[in-house]
């Protein structure tokens, strides 16, 4: 469901499959665990492997944004499939400048 990679102070999490309320809890635990121990400068969430998401995906991104701020790092969300972009647009998350 999740593969992480760490290089040059950047932690990349490749999210795979479906993001809903159920899976978001598991993804969050894994990503936060890695971020807490590595304290990266940048957390990069790669959505290219996401096949479905509901608003739990937005909660997941907003939560990681806050977590990264707490440890003095930044967040970036990359490779959002077109079909899911509408959810991000609705959330106002675009204004945070984390989407690529």
């Amino acid at each position: 469901m999740l593969k992480t990679e760490y290089a040059n102070n950047i932690l990349t999490a490749y999210i795979d499959g479906e993001i809903d309320h159920d899976s978001a809890v598991k993804i969050r635990t894994q990503v936060d665990g890695a971020a807490q121990s590595l304290k990266p400068r940048l957390l990069c969430l790669d959505f290219s492997g996401v096949s479905f998401m509901d608003s739990s995906g937005i909660g997941l991104v907003m939560g990681r944004y806050r977590q990264m701020k707490l440890i003095g790092g930044a967040l970036r969300v990359v490779n959002i499939p077109d079909r899911m972009y509408r959810l991000f647009a609705m959330s106002g998350i675009e204004g945070l400048g984390v989407l690529r």
Partner: peptide
Amino acid sequence: EPLYTTAPEEERAGLGFAV
């Protein structure tokens, strides 16, 4: 209402009905 949630501790975005 968009962004209204009673479960912020569970990282709910408050977007369910809006979606």
